[in-house]
Amino acid sequence: MNMSLNRIAFLYNVRRNYPDPNEKQVQLDTDFDDPATIDSFVKHLQNLNLTVLPIEADESAYLRLQENKDKIDLVFNFAEGLHGRDRECQIPAMLEMLKIPYTGGSPLTEALVLDKAIAKDVLRSHGVPVLPHQVFSTETEELDLELKFPLIVKPNSQGSSAGITNDSVVENENELRRQLKFVISNFKQKALVEPFLDGREFSVPMLGNNPPEILPIIESDHSTLPAGLKPLDSLEVKWIVEEESGGANFICPAKISPDLEEKIKQICLQTWEVLRLCDFCRIDIRCDRAGNPYVLEVNSPAGLIPPEVSMTSYFPLSARVAGMDYETLLKKILSAACHRYGITY
């Protein structure tokens, strides 16, 4: 007999401070969500006639999942994991152990996506265009001769632009060493260094499975940024400028030639296939000056801040452009996951 979807658990991590490019420690929590986002998210799920059990993905998450296992038809996994080497895949790993169905990628997919360097290696080996990169464990390692300035320095395993600020773009050895030191010491993880591209920048939301639907592409309009800000989706731009401007510095749907659009879509579909993504994700793409697109990053789970909290969260914004309200979007994600597990919804 087919199970039907009535009761879900919502797994999340909560941050206590709003992301601030000037507060190094606060940047560590950037991946997490505000309490208002969590509350609002739960209300929307309840509006879909579902009984919702919110569970914070902290040390007690496993026990709470185990205790409630028989009352959970599916988990909406929105958690990033608290700490550890592969924190984003802790919850999928627990859910596999407890045999509870869940939205989003498997532990392998989430682990690959979290480790930017290895995700790029895998994509490159399958012919998906990614930039050459180097991983630094210390700030003193020699720079590969292949890498030419300007370069960008990122934490290897952090999302939501955490650790990516105006200072991340480095023009010389001194700046490189300074930024490596900051990333490695502040985030206690390796730093990824790759060429900084200053061509057009896109974000591509993908929804559903076999194949996923590509929602309207978002383009960052760096020409509207305040003076002094470098043309990239930095922490300053994503969490401050975009909020203050109400989204005036991005365009959705992107004004894009059919050729480039097709190229980007093919790259994203290939990325989805290679990394075995599931249900929903958002892929960041940047072009070089010749207009060739490269995969910068994969966001899984992608940010889904409800509209009453923020009107600039990329995935829900793109869904709205496609004529899909927030609850319909959530319903589609749940439906995609249910379909994979044979759950009626």
Partner: peptide
């Protein structure tokens, strides 16, 4: 690979690869 996942969430040090290495 679920074992390193559980151990990490409990913050218990363990021998061997993490979730990514194991998967």
């Amino acid at each position: 690979s679920t074992i390193p996942g559980i151990l990490e969430s409990l913050d218990i040090p363990y021998t061997g690869a993490g979730i990514l290495g194991e998967t």
